Simulated assay, not measured.
Amino acid sequence: MEMKGDWDLNREECLICKAPLEYLTQDEVMECAICHKKESSKTRCVAGHYVCNDCHTQGMDSIFGLCLSETSADPVAILRRMMELPFCHMHGPEHHVMVGAALLTAYKNAGGNLEFEKSLREMYSRGKAVPGGACGFWGACGAGIATGQFLAIVTQSTPLAQEPWGLSNQMTARALKNIGRVGGPRCCKRDSFLAILAAVDFTREHLGVEMERTIPVCSYSGRNNQCIGKRCPFSAAKALETKEIKTVKRAKLVKLSLK
């Protein structure tokens, strides 16, 4: 994948050298290893490389074409297609935009009423404003925040709105509760799926628009050095284990019925 400066970037951990990331507790002025912009941040790799949010999300505007041509009302499926695009890394602030964009697309395809392209651009702008690491530093995962942004956009909420204001905040709270309940460390894939499923339920309950709801099985664990394994609700190993248990139970029931 090519980005500014023709760097050959890696998808896991440090985009420059693959070294583990480290998170500081206070901002320091850092220089982006790609565009050389200097700004305050708490995140760099152990070798000292820092990549700014703009460089990290380079190419993210490709989601517009995907969303505008999408016909599915399943936001999880739409999100997974976004995750396969070249710009998307294992972790990163691109997920803060992608979650909301997937929800807007599914909402529209499920019959929701909105100015779709205008809404997508607004989501892109709002989602990009949430920096990487917000989950740990702000106590509010960007994927969860994106669900509130999604609801605020479709209900045309403003700081002076009454019901839309309340619903948008309730939406964010529900998504963050589901994300926080699983616990850390962060996984942008897991947290995005949790946020979307919370939004599907909330949108059906409060707006009467029923998007498709599918539970994904993770295919990203090999790329996540901090994978929590079977503690993850989308763990492939956990899904296989559950399937095997169901198969055994079914076999026992068949045996009993034959007696």
Rank of each mutant, 00 (worst) to 15 (best):
R81Y: 06
R81Q: 14
M82G: 05
M83H: 12
L85G: 05
F87A: 14
M90H: 14
H91F: 09
E94K: 04
H96K: 05
G100R: 08
T105Y: 13
A106W: 07
N109F: 07
G111L: 12
G112D: 09
L114C: 11
E115P: 07
L120N: 08
G127F: 06
P131V: 09
C135L: 09
F137A: 08
A140P: 01
C141M: 08
C141D: 08
A143G: 03
G144H: 01
G144Y: 00
T147Y: 01
T147S: 08
G148Q: 12
G148V: 06
Q149S: 12
F150L: 08
F150P: 04
F150W: 05
F150R: 08
L151G: 04
V154G: 10
T155I: 04
T155W: 10
Q156V: 04
Q156Y: 11
Q156K: 15
P159M: 13
P159Q: 10
A161W: 05
A161T: 15
A161C: 10
A161R: 08
Q162M: 13
Q162T: 15
E163I: 14
E163T: 15
P164Q: 09
S168I: 05
N169Q: 13
N169A: 14
Q170A: 13
T172N: 08
L176Y: 00
I179W: 03
G183D: 06
G183V: 03
R186P: 06
C187F: 03
C188E: 02
K189D: 01
R190S: 01
R190N: 00
D191P: 05
D191M: 02
S192M: 03
F193H: 09
L194V: 00
A195H: 01
A195M: 02
A195C: 04
A198S: 15
V200Q: 03
D201W: 00
T203I: 15
E205M: 13
L207V: 10
V209G: 09
M211I: 10
M211D: 07
E212V: 13
T214W: 03
T214Y: 03
I215E: 09
I215Y: 08
C218H: 07
S219V: 12
Y220N: 14
S221K: 13
S221C: 14
R223C: 06
